[in-house]
Amino acid sequence: MERAAPPSTRTATGKPSFLRANAEAIAFVVMAAGLIVAPFFTYPLFLMQAMCFALFACAFNLLIGYVGLLSFGHALYFGWASYLAAHSAKVWGLTPELAILTGTATAAILGLVAGSLAIRRQGIYFAMITLALAQMMFFFALQAKFTGGEDGIQAVPRGYLFGLIDLKNEAAMYIVVLVIFLGGFLLIYRIIHSPFGEVLKAIRENEPRAISLGYKTDRYKLIAFVLSATIAGAAGATKAIVLQLASLTDVNWPMSGEVVLMSLVGGLGTIFGPVVGSFVILLMQYKLSVVGEWVLVIQGIIFVSCVLLFRRGIVGEIAARFKG
């Protein structure tokens, strides 16, 4: 796969420029600050939804961008986590943090099962297997009683965080989502920059070589897969609590396609790309809701033009400009 080289942190004089050396840290601070002030300017509900999708896209990007595995079935973890979170909050009466944990744990288990099947094949087959397994679980969701079929699980109570803080309060809910999003983001950052993450990148670049160096690549791939599914699950579970709804849309294949699109637009294999991409795509969907069905066509056009003209995505292009 064509990939941008990591941006150089040194200027012509050989000294690292402060801006470039700390570009990621600065970008993170800007992002966090932006998300803290943003609800004063725009709808908090939109921002919360966007953060859930951004975390989902970051989790997806962990696989495609850093291990080179294209999962075309990530709706499975997002959707099933949101079902379990909604069900445990509504029927079992769990507090929101426990409901989100339940959903996340479900996604982790599903990721372990699906991942250990999918990593048995490489490349294009991996994408087809993840898609097929996700479709299978979509049919389970369609038939299972507790998911409510076409209706989904509606009117999920937001409940009281730790039994104390009422999340019907929009500000409290916003802070919870912000903490989950930033926490998940930092976790992914940590994974990528750990020795474990370096091995993942080695597998991405040249798997046979990584094997010959003595790494059990299947084990690394599986752990990465489970991590990605788990974080995607956290995003889905949080979304179920925020929107008080879990539905078939979240487990169906177009959702898997959407998260691919978000990451592709933002930039595969860049840490901030999926965040930018998901905000852009969600904003587009809001603005274009008047054109109805044409959204599908527009998404298709974006896919095609990204692949043909714009493979680095928004953040990837910006990083390349900085470097040049």
Binding site: W294, G300, V304, R311
Partner: peptide
């Protein structure tokens, strides 16, 4: 479209044809 992709990773072919599928289905549905 496709002839530009042969030198790239297989995954781009999958993504591009997925986009084409969305376009075709969307237009017909409209």
């Amino acid at each position: 479209f496709l002839q530009w992709l042969y030198k790239l990773d297989h995954l781009y072919g999958l993504l591009l044809t997925f986009g084409l599928a969305l376009i075709i289905e969307g237009v017909v549905r409209n």
